[in-house]
Design a protein around this nucleic acid. Structure first.
Lengths: 184, 184
DNA sequence: TTAAATTGTTAAATATATTAAACAAAAAAT
DNA sequence: ATTTTTTGTTTAATATATTTAACAATTTAA
């Protein structure tokens, strides 16, 4: 679950654009190469001072570093622990891919805790969405119709129709969903 | 010596503008109030994850946080260890105050290591500057004239005249200088 | 005017970032 | 083909950030 800021890919892009190795960057910045590696792979939560030391040799300001466009990611396989966490609370959305700017398709692993509810004011957006229940029980409302889905059941509808998801069961409900174009 | 990013004052400004206490911010962000205090006083080097957690409740993005204008500081007394370090190398400039945008006067504690030199290509800018030598020996060139200043000696000239500073001695040279308007 | 609550700070305990050192894989050199 | 460097990654050791708990100072309540 990576809801962290995608600082790793940002740094890696900057470094590789400049065609320098982790070790070269390490020496110039006075940081160990091990740390550079950990940062680039989001395996640590670096301090600001450290980040600044590194960015000073690029050079780029911290502000620019975070506001700059992230180069379109070319990753194809996203490991289970690399999914991007969106939102929080009783519903967790784990998205495949960080930056969907250049994609039309949004794929997510959704977890609804018992009682989770997308809200009485129904959702509505210009997309199509589909999902398949992996675990638990999901109540789906589309328009006036209310459906209850169990493990193995799936849905597909046009998102312009007002809709709502709820976990009315006692167990966590797990759903794999897809949406095009991405809704958020 | 604070050459750190002035993250403390940034956060403190945001928090006080919103009229919430350190403890309230702490609870909302899930960070201890002690840490908030340490961050606001630049007594720690916070991790990005931590900073993000805090900024999320403001809310403000990390990028905006660092690019936003820092509210004019109202501090009057600046402790020895709070002076702002500018530049590096053989000459260290410790400036009184972080943000001189609204000031005409720039006061600095300068340290010239043996051999330090502002450069053969003489400096020249639209200011007046003055200084007093606290320690060591300082060679000052203004126009064609070359002067050597020792402890207690002072200088004052119009910065449009080409000038240059050098520490020709073996000892570190310490100078307190003033410049108006600020030269950098 | 005193008691109770809230403020920001600090010290010791704990969690975690960072380093130093070793590793395997790939590139460069001989 | 085989050393020799250089690459990026990982683990154990160490340094440091963060928390918990206490503190004094100020504000609010009564």
């Amino acid at each position: 679950m990576s809801n962290e800021i995608d600082i790793g890919i940002r740094l890696k892009n900057l470094r590789t654009e400049r065609k320098i190795s982790q070790r070269q960057l390490a020496i110039k910045s006075g940081i160990s190469n091990a740390t550079i590696s950990l940062v680039e792979n989001n395996k640590t939560n670096p301090s600001l001072g450290l980040l600044k030391q590194v960015l000073d040799v690029i050079p780029i300001s911290i502000g620019d570093f975070f506001t700059m466009d992230v180069k379109q990611e070319n990753k194809i396989v996203h490991r289970a622990d690399e999914l991007t966490e969106i939102g929080s609370g009783l519903i967790s959305y784990l998205q495949v891919g960080n930056n969907l700017k250049n994609y039309k398709l949004q794929m997510m692993l959704e977890r609804y805790q018992p009682g989770a509810d997308t809200g009485k004011s129904m959702l509505s957006h210009e997309s199509e969405e589909s999902g398949l229940v992996l675990q638990g029980r999901l109540e789906l409302t589309v328009g006036d119709e209310v459906y209850v889905l169990n493990k193995g059941d799936a849905y597909l509808f046009n998102s312009t129709l007002p809709h709502r998801f709820r976990n009315t069961g006692r167990e966590e409900c797990v759903v794999v969903s897809a949406c095009t174009p991405p809704s958020f």
